[in-house]
Design a binder for these strands. Structure first.
Length: 716
DNA sequence: GTAGGGTTAG
């Protein structure tokens, strides 16, 4: 009979047998109870499990360590950490497995830091339990989740000291932990040191490369693993597809996505999510929308949110509204979604709709997600929220923050209120910014560590511009290396406000297009209406420039598409370029028919394009880089030296291209206007430069230029 | 004839 219910096919049946047995006065043994508990875990029957719990006590099994461990596991699976802990506390003795279940329970229930603290507690002489390989595995996961690098390194050392270093699972977890902490070198070191790598090892490495901005290497690793005879599985594809989306490789991503069926893998929601991200970021928003509506899986809120993010990047208002509609339908809309929508409206200057959304949020009482920052000091993770008053050293922290504020203001830091989307008065804004969780974490870091120590601050939300600026100044004033990162997210780096690293390298944004504009607007008959307008040096009089002007400097994806409006929280600030203004007026004149002093155009270029590379070039650096490039490549004299004059005559496309290639060493992109009589006019010339915005490079893709073989070079 | 139960990688 016991066997009948212990081993019966379905959990429900097993539980039924068990109840019947009890009613007939049979007394089950601990192992049978264990089976039934497992069944309850599987069907997540909290009621059933509680009944078994009661019976275990009545049956006198309360000193059976293994049975109680199963019971803990049951409560843990029901997200009931309190009862799991109660069982644990009442156990007469606890072995390593019991500790492991508690750690796993905490980690699963969001009490990650408590999970980590158990590593020391269990080794305390009072308990004297030795962490085992599984313990390390669980703790490494917790470290990865928290971005707790120091703690992770400690576990790594423990693993080596205890001879667990060859464990496949442990090595795989180490790769993941180091990757998620942004320590790719260490991840790779572990990976390379493994004599046997399985699909998990490769997938971890591929995801690690992808999330750290090495998309191309991730794709290479994907190819390499197959050469080694290891077949990718579903999670490998998630990794490599996210790599494609970070590098902006649409075709490659598509090919890999479609190759999944050859491996017998049907795409899951994560794969679709990557594809939506890939298409969305590349500006193929309608295709992304189509993919969501046609996939065989029910779209979840995450995938809609991905598309919403893409709508923000590309300023696609109507689609964004439709997407929010879907989120509302799913009853899944969160504060962040409204903030995104708000940003989208703001990016197209629809202030009325911005106000509407704000009103709606207020009416619905929607709270924005509280910002939370963590920093790890001496292996201990400290967590801060906005206006935190929970930290034991809060008094010192706030005093330190005051002191830092004074110092950084002396060094030129000015609070940037623009980051705040809340409807606060200016004064309230000031204080809300002062106590952002990030600043508290930084203050604590400065307080608790000696100079020249690297402080790493992890943040759940995007770091606001003000905190970022603040951090920059603090790092120079206090001589610290500050690193901001977002461990739980796979956002490509250009959306993270990072510094200390050149985060543009190898993330698909490596080349800049340098556009030297030359705009002619013609009427129906082909008459030139107005051209580039600029100030003459030293004069206030406006007249058409007799030279090429700068159109813009655009950070691009390698496939020729480009992100735009990346940071609505970073508006154009004319004061940053006051030193460049004269140069700007003569070299970067307004494109359209003359109006204003050009500021509008610069504002447009900064907000649409410059914000997408602001972690590499700040506003001043952005405009400066463009001006320097124009000096470096003097297009007009290059063409004139080749006998190509702005005289209204026709020149061959090849001769123009060749003249520039001969002079610069690189092939330019030539774009034309077509006038009413069908003639091609020279419109603008594309030159590509590297990440730093200084060296010319060969363009990965050239724009389609609408030029015929013979082009008119109108006079200025 | 009397086994059989707990934690675990990307």
């Amino acid at each position: 009979m016991i066997r009948a219910y212990s081993q019966s096919s379905s959990p429900e049946k097993g539980f039924h047998f068990y109840s019947q047995m009890r009613d007939k006065g049979f007394r089950p043994d601990p192992i049978s109870s264990s089976f039934v508990l497992k069944s309850c875990t599987r069907i997540s029957s909290l009621v059933g499990g509680r009944q078994i719990h009661g019976r275990i006590l009545r049956d006198g099994f309360q000193s059976d360590c293994q049975l109680l461990t199963t019971l803990m596991g049951f409560y843990a699976s029901c997200d009931n950490g309190t009862d799991a802990r109660k069982v644990f506390d009442e156990m007469p003795q606890r072995d390593t497995v019991a500790w492991n279940v508690l750690i796993s329970c905490y980690a699963r229930n969001g009490r990650t830091r408590d999970a980590l603290s158990l590593f020391d507690v269990m080794q305390n002489p009072e308990y004297g339990s030795e962490p085992g390989d599984v313990t390390c595995l669980l703790l490494l996961q917790a470290c990865a989740h928290l971005g707790a690098l120091e703690f992770g390194e400690r576990i790594h050392k423990y693993i080596n000291d205890h001879g667990y270093g060859d464990g496949l699972k442990l090595c795989n977890s180490l790769i993941a932990m180091y990757s998620r902490c942004g320590c790719l070198d260490k991840a790779f070191e572990v990976f390379q040191g493994m004599p046997n790598k399985n699909v998990v090892s490769w997938s971890a490495m591929i995801s690690g490369l992808a999330m750290n901005g090495h998309g191309r290497n991730a794709i290479e690793a994907f190819i390499e693993m197959q050469k080694m005879g290891i077949s990718p599985d579903d999670q490998t594809f998630t990794g490599v597809l996210s790599a494609c989306s970070h590098v902006g490789l649409v075709d490659e991503g598509m090919r890999i996505f479609e190759s999944m069926r050859e491996f017998g893998i049907s795409p899951n929601i994560h794969h679709y999510g990557c594809m939506v991200d890939l298409l969305g970021r590349s500006g193929l928003l309608d295709q992304a929308y189509q993919l969501i509506t046609s996939m065989g899986v029910k779209p979840d809120s995450t995938i809609w949110r991905t598309l919403l993010g893409a709508c923000r990047i590309h300023g696609h208002v109507s689609l964004a509204e439709r997407v929010v509609g879907h989120l509302i339908e799913l009853k899944a809309q969160e504060a962040g979604d409204y903030v995104l929508l708000l940003n989208i409206y703001a990016s197209v200057s629809d202030w009325e709709k911005v106000a509407n959304v704000r009103r709606l949020m207020k009416e619905k009482g929607i709270q924005t997600t509280p910002g939370c920052s963590t920093t790890e000091i001496n292996g201990e993770v400290h967590e801060f929220v906005v206006d935190d008053d929970a930290h034991p050293r809060k008094k010192e922290i706030y005093e330190m923050l005051d002191e830092i504020e004074k110092q950084v203001k002396l060094a030129g830091y000015v609070a940037d209120m623009s980051a705040e989307l809340h409807d606060l008065g200016a004064q309230e804004k000031g204080s809300a910014l002062t106590y952002h969780s990030e600043k508290l974490a930084i203050a604590f870091g400065v307080l608790a560590t000696p100079p020249n120590t690297k402080i790493r601050v992890a943040k759940n939300l995007r770091t606001c511009v003000d905190c970022h600026n603040f951090a920059k100044v603090v790092s120079s004033v206090y001589n610290r290396e500050l690193e901001e990162f977002k461990p739980r997210d796979l956002l490509p780096k250009w959306e993270q406000l990072g510094f200390g690293t050149n985060d543009f390298k190898d993330n698909g944004l490596s080349p800049y297009w340098f556009l030297m504009g030359f705009k002619f607007l013609s009427d129906e008959s082909g008459t030139l209406l107005c051209g580039m307008v600029s100030y003459n040096e030293g004069s206030d009089k406006r007249k058409p420039a007799a030279n090429f002007g700068i159109h813009g400097l655009w950070p691009n994806y390698n496939d020729g598409s480009y992100p735009s409006n990346c940071d609505p929280d970073s508006p154009f600030d004319p004061s940053t370029i006051s030193g460049l203004k004269r140069q700007m007026q003569s070299n970067w004149p307004t494109l359209a028919c003359p109006s204003g002093d050009g500021t509008k155009f610069w504002e447009h270029e900064w907000e649409k394009h410059g914000t997408c590379s602001e972690s590499v070039l700040d506003q001043e650096g952005y405009f400066e880089a463009a001006l320097n490039l124009k000096k470096q490549v003097d297009l007009l004299s290059i063409l004139q030296k080749a006998g190509i004059q702005p005289d209204g005559r026709f020149y061959s496309l090849t001769s123009i291209t060749k003249a520039i290639r001969d002079a610069t060493g690189y092939t330019p992109g030539i774009e034309c206007n077509v006038d009413a009589s069908g003639n091609s006019q020279l419109y603008q010339i594309y030159i590509c430069v590297d990440t730093d915005g200084t060296n010319l490079i060969e363009c990965p893709v050239l724009p389609r230029g609408k030029c015929s073989s013979r082009i008119e070079f109108p006079s200025f």
